[in-house]
Structures are given as C-alpha cells and as structure tokens.
Amino acid sequence: MLSGLALLVLAAIHMVAHHFVVEEVGGLRTYRQVLDYIASPVMFTLESAFLVTVTAHALMGVRNVLLDLGAGPRARRRIDAAMWILGILTVGYGMFLVGTLASRA
C-alpha cells in the first residue's frame, strides 16, 4: 500500500543522493565531459541510484495525487499496476541511456 512513510524516507535518500550529484557537477557542458562523467564508476552508480529513487518517488507522488481523488480499492489496484509499469519502463530506459553513454566513453 501507500505508504506515505516510504515516500518520506525515499525523499530523504534522494536528497542525499542529489546533493552528491550537485557537488560533483561543476560545469558539465560538452559532449565529452558528459561521457567522461558518466563513465566514472562512482558517478555511474550514483546516477543510477538517483534515477531509481527519483522515479520511485515521483511515481508514488503521482499515485498519491490520484488517490486523493478518492480511488476505491479497485481503482487503487489499477493505479498501482500502471505506476509499476511506468516505473519499470522509466528505470529501464534510463539505465539503457546511462549504460550506452558510459560504454561510449
């Protein structure tokens, strides 16, 4: 089910992750720079973790907004299913993206 709590905890994790990313950025501009950046194993892991947490948080958030519209048990199950599918697609595509880019560096 929800739980609002999980969302809160996730948001916290995400905050930390986000902070790391921001610290390291310092002027990502050109194509090369981006590729080098993503190829570093530390950043790769961080970005991936970031991707997963943001997606999870964002979709739980969207789910929460939808539930506030008064979803009954059935609608709730449908929303859950839709969010899972969308989440897996998003993370899948994101991983493909970082993976491909990292391998090109």
Binding site: L35, V54, T55, G61, V62, V65, T90, Y93, L97, T100
Partner: peptide, 20 residues
C-alpha cells in the same frame, strides 16, 4: 511544483536521449 518536476523528469530523459 511536484507535477512540474515529474514533467521535467521525462523532458530531461528525452533531452538526454540527444546524447545518443
């Protein structure tokens, strides 16, 4: 802002596809 950020998340993913 949350819904805006979700929109941005997907926009962002789209834009990063340009890197490909």
């Amino acid at each position: 802002t949350a819904l805006g950020l979700v929109l941005y998340l997907y926009l962002h993913l789209g834009v990063l596809s340009l890197l490909l």
